[in-house]
């Protein structure tokens, strides 16, 4: 830290100009806008409040639409796991659990990768490669979800099922990794009548992880790159290795960004639709077995169930959508607060 002494300005040296400040009251300023400005202000205000009406209207509409459903099903809407609108049995317990499972697994995959990639970009990559890597991450954020969904479905799933088969075979005693089938059957001939490994929450989470990775990485990288250069150089000058410097300076400084970026990514993961719809085989069941075929998420439920929905079922779907929106909103707001605090009142751009 170099603190340069400010040379005394000529004004403050001889006679103090601040003595007269008390008598010098501010002059009242009358604001009189020209016609042009009046029109401009009114037009912009009307447009902005139109947007306010539209956006808040959506939230209110979803909220109102979910009232009849909640009245009709009551608390059982949250505890019932089956989704059988034709028999008037509708509940989102299984869907909610599936949504959270997919999002959390995606986060477990994406979080270490984002953290390490962000650190690599700010602290390990050679100077010339940094802007290229930043651009590549931004570009990855623009890759449509359907492309990742297609890739996971056709390229990754055949390999991923081998891995999940292996995990369930040797680590199946951990409830999460269990698959209720005969694990000794080879992967290419499934035990008949039992769940298989394809279309599980874990494999859908791979696609979601690809979708949320760029967002988490760019938030973390931005915060890491703001770590004070003076302290980093001081650590190196004291003989710290690069890792020691990162551990003592960059990571403590960027903790808020790491948490905030992760939560923003979680918010995105909860609402991710198309890549999940492509991969999962839908099943309404409460189970911890994330490697087993069959799961359901709110977004996939909406995407697959809207077409045949009667007005009452549509209301149930809207309630599920409203719940999804509220979850995302809470997670995003918390993330925004954390990121803003870590940047000292800065802005979140995503």
């Amino acid at each position: 830290m170099s603190r340069v002494a400010v040379p005394p300005s000529p004004a403050s040296s001889s006679d103090d100009p601040w003595t007269g400040v008390d008598e010098d009251l501010p002059r009242p300023i009358a604001v009189r806008y020209s016609l042009q400005d009046k029109v401009f202000l009114q037009v912009v205000r009307v447009l902005a409040f139109t947007v306010l009406a539209i956006t808040s209207g959506i939230g209110i509409f979803l909220g109102i639409q979910s009232v009849p459903t909640l009245q009709h099903y009551g608390l059982s809407f949250f505890t019932e796991y089956r989704w059988l609108p034709s028999q008037d049995i509708v509940g989102i317990a299984a869907v909610l659990l599936g949504t959270i499972q997919v999002a959390v697994i995606a986060l477990l995959i994406a979080f270490p990768l984002s953290l390490l990639t962000a650190l690599y970009i700010t602290d390990w990559a050679p100077g010339w490669a940094r802007p290229l890597l930043v651009r590549a991450v931004d570009l990855m954020a623009a890759v449509p979800g359907i492309v990742f969904g297609l890739w996971v479905l056709i390229v990754i799933q055949p390999r991923a099922t081998e891995v999940t088969h292996w995990i369930s075979k040797y680590l199946g005693w951990i409830p999460f990794f269990k698959v209720r089938t005969d694990v000794d059957y080879p992967i290419w001939t499934q035990a008949p009548g039992y769940p298989s490994y394809a279309g599980s929450a874990a494999i859908a989470a791979l696609a979601v992880a690809m979708m949320i990775f760029p967002m988490a990485t760019s938030v973390m990288r931005e915060v890491f790159s703001e770590a004070p250069a003076g302290e980093k150089e001081a650590a190196l000058a004291l003989g710290a290795t690069r890792w020691a410097m990162v551990r003592t300076v960059v990571l403590p400084f960027g903790r808020g960004g790491v948490i905030g970026g992760t939560m923003l990514a979680l918010g995105r993961a909860l609402g991710e639709t198309i890549s999940v719809v492509m991969v999962i085989s839908q099943a309404f069941e409460i189970k911890p077995y994330v490697l087993e075929s069959g799961t359901a998420t709110i977004s996939a439920l909406i995407a697959s169930g809207f077409k045949e929905a009667s007005p009452a079922q549509l209301s149930a779907l809207l309630t599920a959508g409203f719940l999804l929106f509220v979850m995302t909103l809470v997670v995003n707001s918390m993330a925004a607060v954390v990121v803003a605090r870590s940047r000292g009142g800065g802005v979140t751009e995503l």
Partner: peptide
Amino acid sequence: EAMTALPSIVAGLF
């Protein structure tokens, strides 16, 4: 800012 959290599928459903 709150509405940026709206999942795209919910926008479609709306």
